[in-house]
Design a protein around this nucleic acid. Sequence first.
DNA 1: AAACAGTCGGATACAGTATAACGTCTCGCG
DNA 2: CGCGAGACGTTATACTGTATCCGACTGTTT
Lengths: 150, 150
Amino acid sequence: MASTSDDAVLDRADVLCRARGVKLTAQRRRVLAILCASPRPLGAYEILDAMREGTRTLAPPTVYRALDFLLEQGLVHKLESLHAFVGCSHPEHPHSSQFLICKTCGAVAEIEDEAIARSLGSAASMSGFQPQRRVVEVIGTCAGCAQKGR
Amino acid sequence: MASTSDDAVLDRADVLCRARGVKLTAQRRRVLAILCASPRPLGAYEILDAMREGTRTLAPPTVYRALDFLLEQGLVHKLESLHAFVGCSHPEHPHSSQFLICKTCGAVAEIEDEAIARSLGSAASMSGFQPQRRVVEVIGTCAGCAQKGR
DNA sequence: AAACAGTCGGATACAGTATAACGTCTCGCG
DNA sequence: CGCGAGACGTTATACTGTATCCGACTGTTT
Ligand SMILES: [Zn+2]
Ligand SMILES: [Zn+2]
Ligand SMILES: [Zn+2]
Ligand SMILES: [Zn+2]
């Protein structure tokens, strides 16, 4: 993330949670803020370190609980191939997106491609399979790094 | 896996490795055999336990080294969302497949869907992204379990 | 035969990721 | 006020994966 206005994202998250009758508590908001401020995905322990800035004493479960909540609410995504988390770029509507992960610079692009979703869905239904969660992560080199690297 | 003839898979793997000038050693063959005999993906430590059957004393690096080799040779795949491994169902030709993972019975189907591959490729090239590895895992309910569950 | 290089794998220790279990505090409600 | 639910602190522990060092074996060179 690290968008032009992270505060806006946080405020939108606030509104979303209120509308859903769930609480974006201080800890949860803090985790979301840290993720949104990072240009690359963060591991749970990196988030933990970031939250400890300023002599706070926190343990892993605190972070994992906040992450569980944010994942449930679709405010963050987990990148399985990296064991890391990113803020969602468009949490307003429920979605299942795909990720392009640059192994050179670490940047991650979240895309929402209709064609991928369709082909995934039809492959599943051909097998009589009922999808619940989709993990689609492409690891490679982003446009910027490909330029430099040549 | 747990196909009709696991030995056949092993023998084919042998031939493949010989053709490539690499060695399918006893340990590697053993890991592959264990994976092929299992109806569901196995974690590294489950493989380790299986290999210890009969008072053998083995440490994690042994299994991870064998898995690294088998992954490089395309004889097994890693399921990132499960931290587990499966034998490949068609290792003869290099491929990048997709997985349907039933969270009820634990069974995994490896599919190779041209449409998914195409849509993934075109989404990447639209972003100028150069894919190297593709992780596509759909978690849900398989046809069999959906039947029973209703 | 002796020396050597390369690969495989045994063994110990450790790093990184995630959760179980239990206690406390607070808030909203009857 | 007394109660129940949810959030969070705290400790300990489980699970997943690596770094490192060393010894055994194989095939090659001299
Ligand atoms: Zn998203
Ligand atoms: Zn890049
Ligand atoms: Zn395969
Ligand atoms: Zn099933």
